[in-house]
């Protein structure tokens, strides 16, 4: 899995904040690069892949940060 260019820290933020941050910062990376978001909100587990599908981006997967918080990765396609 490619290393993310940008990682957003959304620990402690409730839905839909982590997805809003993704929307705001997707433009910070180039097409083909990966953006990651660390989010402990349970809804993010469903909503980050749904966001990628709706916005035509590629959901790469989910890994765990050292503190156990899920980190979701998305590749910018457009």
């Amino acid at each position: 899995m490619s290393a993310p260019t940008v990682t957003l820290d959304c620990r402690g933020q409730a839905c839909p904040r982590p997805v809003i941050e993704l929307g705001r910062h997707l433009g910070d990376i180039e097409i083909g690069e990966v953006i990651a978001v660390a989010a402990d909100d349970v809804a993010a587990h469903h909503d980050v892949p749904a966001w990628a599908r709706m916005r035509g981006q590629e959901f790469v997967g989910e890994v765990e940060a050292e503190d156990g918080v899920p980190v979701y990765r998305i590749r910018r396609l457009s």
């Binding site: 839905c15 469903h46 892949p49 749904a50 599908r53």
Partner: peptide, 16 residues
């Protein structure tokens, strides 16, 4: 404070 299990199971957006 859990999202809808229905929306989650079908892969639909749960917020908004």
């Amino acid at each position: 404070r859990e999202p809808s299990r229905v929306l989650a199971a079908m892969g639909a957006l749960t917020h908004g």
